[in-house]
Amino acid sequence: MNALKDSLVELIRRTSAEIPDDVNRALVTALENEKKGTIAASALKIIEQNIELAKRKSQPICQDTGSVIFYVDCPVGFDQIACEEAAREAVKAATKIGYLRQNSVDSLTGKNDGTNLGPGAPVVHCHQHRSSEISVRLMLKGGGCENVGAQYSLPAEKLHANRDLDGCRKVILDAVLQAQGKGCGPGILGVCIGGDRATGYEYSKQQFLRMLDDRNANPELDALEQDILKTANELGIGPMGFGGKTTLLGVKICAANRVPASFFVSISYMCWAFRRQGVTLGAEGEIEKWLY
């Protein structure tokens, strides 16, 4: 079990300190596209320096090390309880070292005991599959971007959004407009069309596990993703909301069934400091390979 805990501490370290390659590539392109000498270009330059510095120093890219969310895919017979225990121990250890900020607050008393452990912290989702592979993906989602997420119930009369894909498009773009620079753009959207209030947000977050440059297998959703990305980048919100060409780096959309009475569109916003990594683990819990 110690090997598993050590692997998870390393997963936390790398997630907190290193931007995944797919996101880094998108940020480099964004910097090339912004007009030289603008404050948008200055912002992206500082972001690039920050990425390099965080990696070199093995220190958090962003001081808000966020909600700690593990996604575990495991074979039948895998000890999920032990895995959750190892995840908690890893979070506690990573906090002591400073890979994570003391970031978990008792919502009733306001007390922060400095361990990052408590009800709902960390979150561990375990999912069984038929394969023998064990994989653990980790997302550290900061509060600034979490706060600009939004859930719409269609029809949304004020936005003239009906229960169709055009209505979905309208509310998703409204979420981008409302977010402005507050979620540390350029951002990435994860969207779920359908589901209930809980699963809608849950699935919208899981979209962040996709590679940034992948394409949606569903042609209608793929077209919507491309359209939202293009349109959002024509709005001139730009990095940090300073104005500029890059408002979003990517859009990922899924659909889940709904009951006839409900039609939710749930939108999660991820900041440019997109912290997600993943590993596959060997039988003893050792890291076999990195997933992003």
Binding site: I47, N50, A54, K57, Q59, Q63, M240, C271
Partner: peptide, 13 residues
């Protein structure tokens, strides 16, 4: 004064 959100290392320096 708007600092760059997320640039925790550059600003910690």
């Amino acid at each position: 004064l708007h600092a760059i959100g997320g640039a925790a290392q550059v600003l910690a320096e």
